[in-house]
């Protein structure tokens, strides 16, 4: 049996990724189980999902505490030592990262492969939803499930054009994932932090959730208050008849960008 843990953020499709993996493995003749961990359903909040793949029916219901493989869908989470916690000795970490695995600072007696899944997702799906864009990397580095089965599972999950776009994404990640290498660091370089910044409440700093940052061009702003009204995080304050973003509250959902009638809010990719 192998156990897999998937880290992502609400909206990146970690749960869908877990189900696609389980479904594709079942198509390959294995038994599987996909467990989502639901916390508060809030777009952007860090969350995890688990998968077990085995030759016999999986019976236990506990979470996967010592995974063989960890997948990280989010580029910022990919820099956290915490994502490797519990990973078995010699286990594999598949990261959504621009960095080659040798440059990754996550330490341990583990192996690492990286793929720039955000870039692939933006180019194939036009959105930073990285769940399918990492599955091809998984298939390549682990050796299963087969790409045929993943394709079938994707077509079932997303019929039509969306499915074909996702299939393009898995093929790119299959091609672009780096070889698996032993982690460079054995002792932690970055401190292990609590990555479970979940839950409600605007007091928490959620700036690390952003893939994109909204920036208001106040010269063009008409003061219509649409952004202020629609921001789900009350991150936009009203000062001197103009909007002002409190960035520690902004999770980068882009709703303000969509809502602004004069399109004066730019949305810039966070540099990682």
């Amino acid at each position: 049996m192998i156990g897999i843990r998937i880290h992502g953020r609400g909206g990146q499709g970690a749960v869908t990724a877990s189900r696609l993996l389980a479904d594709a493995s079942f198509r390959d003749g294995k038994f599987s189980q996909a467990i989502p961990m639901y916390g508060t359903e809030r777009r952007g909040a860090p969350l995890v999902a688990y998968v077990r793949i085995d030759d016999v029916r999986v019976r236990e219901r506990e979470l996967v505490h010592e995974p063989d493989v960890v997948i990280v869908l989010d580029p910022l989470l990919s820099k956290e030592q915490s994502v490797a916690s519990g990973l078995k000795k010699g286990g594999l970490l598949i990261l959504n990262s621009k960095l080659p695995p040798e440059k990754v600072e996550i330490a341990g007696d583990i192996k690492i492969a990286t793929v720039d899944a955000t870039k692939i997702a933006l180019e194939t799906l036009k959105r930073p939803i990285t769940n399918t864009a990492i599955l091809g990397a998984f298939s390549k580095s682990v050796g299963y499930p087969t790409m045929e089965s993943i394709e079938k599972s994707i077509r079932k999950q997303f019929p039509g054009r969306v499915g074909e776009m996702n299939i393009a994404a898995i093929h790119r990640s299959y091609e672009e994932v780096t070889p698996v290498v032993q982690a460079t660091h054995t002792e932690p370089v970055v401190e292990e932090s609590d990555i479970a910044v979940g839950g409600y409440g605007v007091l928490k700093d959620v700036s690390s959730w952003r893939v994109f940052t909204p920036i208001i061009d106040l010269d063009k702003c008409t003061g219509c208050r649409s952004c202020w009204l629609f921001c789900p995080e009350t991150a936009i304050q009203w000062k001197d008849d103009r909007p002002e973003i409190e960035y520690h509250k902004c999770k980068g959902c882009g709703i303000c960008v969509e809502e602004c009638p004069v399109k004066c809010i730019a949305f810039e990719r966070v540099v990682v």
């Binding site: 479904d23 079942f26 996909a34 467990i35």
Partner: peptide, 10 residues
């Protein structure tokens, strides 16, 4: 709930 309602298996 959750343990079975949202867990996918064959």
């Amino acid at each position: 709930g959750y343990v079975l309602s949202y867990t996918a298996e064959p």
